[in-house]
């Protein structure tokens, strides 16, 4: 017994820290689970309160469009350029089109859109709901016998789940256009060289699985944004750290989900 006491504090400190972080993480996960349980029970609100759902689709989805399209355009342009550089001297340039198509549709389109959404949507949901929390607006809503999850979380999560695949479809399209533009305007390809082989490599399963992944990215980002917002406390500073937390956790979740879904889908 007495020997245990002699372990120097410096050796114990990291163990204590890890233990504390683990406990905190577990309790957060628990609270997240409880919130999600509540939200699942109230999913019917998408239909009964359609105007809230539509408003969030417009606010979170449509207004994200310019940013994600810009990201898509540049990503496509870069991947066209890079593929040209990589294939030069090894393979015919006809392969650039299918190469760009596959990498965009399978990976780049959904993941980059997911990351942009983590930054823009998850953080803004967390900031908005966090502000409502610390200024007692959530309490006010609840005191009026209006469920804050039904009124605030359900429409946001449903909207993002539905809108992200729509966004990704557009990102995919504009990214391929971006690749086509740089390879035909700045490099030596013709349009028929670029598009020629795409149909023979086209696989609906690729497109579908990319969109399915993005659906999960949108859903997880909105869920994390809502959870972190509802969990915020302590004034403007609390809202600030909630915003950062939402961004960090939702982008990490996008990357982890991407990996897990890749293992399941392919």
């Amino acid at each position: 017994m007495s020997r245990a006491v002699t372990i120097p504090a410096i050796l114990l400190a990291p163990v204590q820290l890890i233990g504390k972080l683990l406990l905190e993480f577990t309790s957060e996960l628990g609270r997240f689970g409880i919130l999600m349980g509540r939200i699942t029970k109230e999913l019917g609100a998408i239909f009964s309160r359609r105007e809230l759902f539509i408003r969030e689709c417009v606010r979170l989805g449509v207004e994200s469009l310019p940013l994600v399209l810009l990201v898509g355009l540049f990503t496509g342009a870069v991947s066209g350029w890079q593929l040209h550089y990589q294939l030069e001297g090894y393979m015919p340039f006809d392969m650039i089109g299918p190469g760009v198509f596959k990498s965009i549709v399978l990976e780049m389109g959904p993941v980059l859109t997911g990351l942009v959404i983590s930054g823009r949507v998850a953080a803004s949901i967390a900031a908005e709901l966090g502000t409502m929390k610390v200024t007692e607006q959530i309490d006010a809503l609840e005191s009026m016998a209006i469920s804050s999850t039904r009124y605030l979380a359900v429409p946001r999560i449903a909207a993002m789940t539905m809108m992200t695949p729509v966004l990704v479809t557009q990102v995919n399209f504009i990214a391929i256009m971006g690749a086509w533009f740089v390879t035909t305007v700045f490099l030596s390809l013709t349009s028929s060289q670029f598009f020629g082989l795409i149909p023979s490599f086209f696989d609906l399963y690729d497109v579908f699985s990319g969109l399915l992944k993005s659906l999960f990215f949108g859903m997880s980002s909105a869920m994390i944004g809502c959870y972190v917002g509802f969990d915020a406390s302590g004034g403007a500073e609390g809202v600030g750290s909630a915003t950062i937390k939402a961004f960090v956790w939702s982008s990490l979740t996008v990357l982890v989900l991407d990996f897990l879904l890749a293992m399941i889908l392919f």
């Binding site: 502000t131 409502m132 200024t135 007692e136 607006q137 309490d139 006010a140 809503l141 609840e142 005191s143 009026m144 016998a145 469920s147």
Partner: peptide, 18 residues
């Protein structure tokens, strides 16, 4: 929620929906 329907609450901070 059923019981809350009997209440009206004025919050210290007013807590209006921004």
């Amino acid at each position: 929620y059923r019981i809350r329907m009997k209440f009206g609450v004025l919050f210290q901070s007013a807590a209006l929906f921004d």
